[in-house]
Each structure stands twice: as structure tokens, then as C-alpha cells.
């Protein structure tokens, strides 16, 4: 096709991209504005990007919560993978009755709305004195992402040619060795994808964090949501916090866009 036939789609694509990025860009700009400029009418279109006061104020008070988010998210990702990878391997390579049933059951637990488990989890952690602690959040986030992690990991293990696994078995590898020395290295990029998705899901979570934390263990999304109060909304803090909060998902989306479709559909659709 020649250049002319591309002109119209290109204009459309620029327009579409504008629609989906302009709100984000506008919020990013607010983070570099003074409170006065944020409230200015007509708006200050381009701020002074050297004005970093909002970030300083935000982080000086709230860096512990950003750290909480990071610890919870990394912890949940590691725990979730540690449980999901062996299970996914077993579900793909072991032959046993109820194999399909087990896989379907795991998938079905993904349908469970977090709100249906929130009160019992609150009570259990209350009983153990673990409310408002980081381990409680790690345990819960790992659990809620487990079905997803297992299913996506299964789709990556299935892509390993069966002969390779069988050859390893014939050569005398135990299942543990086959898993560690053959399957894991071959599914490396898939594992990275699963890990990043679990990371982002845990990073973005709000509902369960509201239930399970009150002060010390609050995550960054909980803190951000508290900047909007009945009496005043701290837009300068919200915008600065939003930049920090959306940075990991944005970087992830740009780097791993090839895997997003198969990830979000749990391996059902390949791109």
C-alpha cells in the first residue's frame, strides 16, 4: 500500500492515542504545579517542570507507605510464584484422574469476588493479631493471584515440547530435577510475564488493603485515596502520588506489550 492510503488511519491513530493518553498527561502536569496554579482559571497549560515541591512534601510524609507497597508487592509476587510454578508444572505434565477438574476448579476460584472473602479474612487476621501487618497482605495477595499465576504458567509450560520433558525423564531426571533444570529455564520469559502481572495486580489493589490495614501497614493506594477528604482534596499530592503509583504499570505496559493479551486472558488468547 502507498503512503496516501495510510494518511487517514494515521490521523485516526494519533487521535485515538490522544484520547487515551491526554488525561494521564494532564494529571502528570498537575504534579509540577503549585496549589495556586492547580486552581487557576484559565488553566496553566504547561507547568515549570523543575518545581518538585509536591513530590518532596508527599514523600517526606509518606515514603514508609510507598515502601510498604513495594515490600507487599514483591513478597506477594515471590510467594505466589513459589506456589504456582510447581502446581502449573504438575497440572501440565502429571497424568492423574481429576486433572482437568483440578485445573477448572483453580480457574473458578479466580471468579471469586474479593469482597466475599474480606470479612472472614479480617476476622482470621484479627484473631492472630495480624491486622495491619505486612505479612497479612502478602499472604492474601499471593492467594488472590494464585489462580491467575497457575493458569498463565500452565500456558507457558504447555509450549515446551513434550519430547524435551520426556527425554529428561528417560535420562533419569527426577520430577524435581526435570522441573528445576529443564522446565523452569525453558519457561523463563513466561515466568517473567507471570511475575510482572502478579506484581501489577498486587500493586494496584485497594479493596483488601482497606479492610486489612489501618495505619502502619497501609499501602500507597490506600494513602492516595485518603488525600481526597470531605473537606478538602489535595490535588497537588494526588497528582504527585499518581505519577509514582502508575510508573511501574506504565513501564511494564511499554516493555511487555506483546504479553499483555495472553496475560490478561490467562493464556486463552495469543498475540
Amino acid at each position: 500500500m502507498n503512503r496516501e492510503t495510510k494518511a487517514l488511519p494515521l490521523v485516526a491513530a494519533v487521535f485515538i492515542t490522544f484520547i487515551f493518553t491526554a488525561p494521564i498527561i494532564w494529571m502528570v502536569m498537575a504534579a509540577f504545579k503549585t496549589v495556586v496554579d492547580i486552581y487557576a482559571v484559565p488553566p496553566v497549560w504547561v507547568p515549570d517542570f523543575t518545581y518538585l515541591e509536591n513530590f518532596k512534601v508527599l514523600l517526606s510524609d509518606n515514603w514508609p507507605f510507598l515502601l510498604n507497597s513495594l515490600i507487599v508487592t514483591v513478597g506477594a509476587t515471590v510467594l505466589s510464584l513459589a506456589l504456582a510454578l510447581p502446581a502449573a508444572f504438575g497440572l501440565v505434565y502429571f497424568q492423574f484422574r481429576s486433572q482437568n477438574f483440578l485445573a477448572d476448579w483453580i480457574l473458578s476460584t479466580r471468579m471469586m469476588p474479593p469482597i466475599a472473602a474480606a470479612v472472614p479474612l479480617y476476622m482470621v487476621f484479627n484473631g492472630f493479631g495480624m491486622l495491619d501487618t505486612i505479612p497479612a497482605l502478602i499472604i492474601v495477595y499471593a492467594g488472590f493471584n494464585l489462580p491467575f499465576a497457575i493458569w498463565v504458567a500452565m500456558s507457558f509450560f504447555r509450549n515446551i515440547p513434550r519430547e524435551i520433558i520426556e527425554a529428561a525423564r528417560v535420562e533419569g531426571c527426577s520430577w524435581v530435577q526435570t522441573f528445576r533444570l529443564v522446565a523452569l529455564p525453558l519457561a523463563k520469559s513466561g515466568i517473567a510475564t507471570v511475575a510482572t502481572f502478579v506484581f501489577i495486580f498486587a500493586w494496584n489493589e485497594l479493596l483488601l488493603a482497606l479492610f486489612l490495614t489501618t495505619r502502619e501497614a497501609r499501602t500507597f493506594p490506600v494513602v492516595i485515596s485518603s488525600f481526597s477528604t470531605v473537606t478538602r482534596t489535595y490535588w497537588e499530592l494526588i497528582s504527585a502520588a499518581t505519577i509514582i503509583q502508575i510508573l511501574p504499570p506504565v513501564i511494564f505496559t511499554i516493555i511487555m506489550q506483546r504479553h499483555i493479551v495472553s496475560g490478561l486472558t490467562m493464556g486463552a488468547v495469543k498475540h
Partner: peptide
């Protein structure tokens, strides 16, 4: 352009909400 246009779907939902509250 496509990789920029898909940014909304992965960003934190509360940030999306606050972004539009602001706009």
C-alpha cells in the same frame, strides 16, 4: 502509537478515578 494508546488498562484504577475527578 499503539503502545501508548494501551496505557490506560494497566494503570491503578484509583489513579484513573482521581485523574478524571480532577479533569
Amino acid at each position: 502509537l499503539r503502545s501508548l494508546a494501551i496505557l490506560p488498562m494497566m494503570i491503578t484504577p484509583i489513579c484513573v478515578g482521581l485523574m478524571f475527578s480532577y479533569i
